[in-house]
Design a protein around this nucleic acid. Structure first.
Lengths: 246, 246
DNA sequence: AGGAAGCGTATTGCATACAATCCCGGTCGA
DNA sequence: TCGACCGGGATTGTATGCAATACGCTTCCT
């Protein structure tokens, strides 16, 4: 429930509010990758000074959602393909750990909550709204919270949001991060106390997400390949002397 | 190689320098857990304004090495036992991933570097210097760098330093974080392309470190158990009406 | 004596001011 | 026409100032 606007926030909370607002905007792709983030404009929009905006941007930079170049300011990060690969690699490691911690230890209420969440994802997906991206990520976050391990929760949160940004760059437009059936299957394995199966499912799930998105556009990143059909249709051939970068 | 003192650092580098200095001091236990960290004093010491000190402290707080309470300033963090457990749990997950990424993929030079490092640890350990703590952590960091995964490197670095802080609180004084032979064995398994064995060794290694330190003092945290031998030697019995906390 | 209230100081939270840097436009010369 | 040079404006980097808060000490009352 949002606070009343003219109730002053407690000390230190305003920077956090700015941080959260920016983070949400990036993840939901209201701020697209590469967008410039000037301190003045943001501070003006939120009614805070540059000091607090800087603090928020610094945090986002540490998380990898924002890139800060000295004397040139902050932009929404544009992850490289290598960073994308790294993020999914780490994510797989963390989520496998999570599966092992959770298998067979979920209370009935927790399972119910997860099912409810999956239903929400389903709805949002049917509507095709942009919040489906956020919800898909939140499923993983919800699982992380249930481990009771605050550090794991933070890391999963961080790496999930980074993956969301990556998908916004390399993924197909508005394709949801996670297929619904995969989440259901994972939950089923967890309820069944089958850690290995849950871990394998999660691994496959993440692998699928990564491949659908990143590997698909790994080809597209090569401008020669990308332009080949157009060149052919126009009867144009590459200059013989120049070679594509190795 | 340290910079000349009166050469001005490039933009944004001074905050980082303060961050690094404080971080090192905490990990090497020059600043012990619980120590107050006033912005003025630190800024004066390093010749920078409170602004930059705040930035450094914020970063350390995100990493969990420093605790910031609004309006009350920053102190070196005093991790709880639960946070300690969480940190080692996450660390095991991350380092297992690392073993899988590295097994059978280390170049001869890399192996040589690792051996050299282990030798350094050995020396420092023999001398009993405080840098043995740092070196033991750096072995893990060195491995992380060799994965080529920058995100994994950052997480391992973060969680390692947090573990170092934890050991400074709950570990026995000046006991090195890692036994040397364990590092050697892990390296051997990695060279041998035996991912499972390397993972198992690393798991056991971290488990051993955690148990030697944390579990040992988990008992000590219970003041009743802690005082029992002293009470007995003085012929004192607990008050019958009062019960120890469950 | 013990505790509550009041006050002074130290420290933080935040905004702002100033200096440094960079980007972008134009201008000039080749 | 193109590239090099060079202000002007915008934006960031850092220091500092002011208000707000918390802590410790004294004082006073019970």
């Amino acid at each position: 429930m949002p606070r009343h606007a003219d109730a002053p926030l407690p000390a230190g909370a305003r920077a956090q509010a700015v941080y959260r607002a920016l983070r949400g905007a990036i993840i939901e792709q209201a701020l697209r990758a590469g967008t410039k983030l000037p301190e003045d404009a943001i501070g003006e929009r939120f009614g805070v000074s540059r000091t607090l905006v800087r603090e928020a941007l610094t945090r986002l930079a540490i998380e990898g959602l924002v890139e800060i170049v000295p004397n040139r300011g902050a932009t929404v990060a544009l992850p490289t393909l290598e960073e994308a690969r790294d993020a999914f690699e780490v994510r797989r490691g963390l989520e496998r750990l999570m599966m092992e911690l959770l298998a067979g230890r979920l209370s009935p209420e927790q399972c119910a909550n997860l099912r409810d969440h999956i239903a929400l994802e389903d709805e949002a997906r049917a509507r095709g709204g942009p919040e489906s991206i956020r919800l898909a990520g939140e499923f993983h976050l919800l699982l992380a919270q249930m481990t009771g391990n605050a550090l794991l929760e933070r890391y999963i949160d961080e790496v999930s949001s980074r993956c969301a940004l990556i998908l916004s760059v390399y993924g197909r437009p508005h394709s949801p991060e996670c297929a619904i059936s995969e989440h259901s299957q994972i939950l089923a394995a967890l309820e069944n106390d089958d850690a290995d199966r849950a871990a394998a499912l999660m691994d496959a799930h993440l692998q699928a997400v990564a491949e659908r998105a990143v590997l698909a556009s790994a080809q597209a990143a090569d401008i020669h390949t990308l332009l080949a059909p157009f060149a052919a249709s126009e009867g144009l051939a590459p200059a013989p002397g120049r070679k594509p970068r190795p």
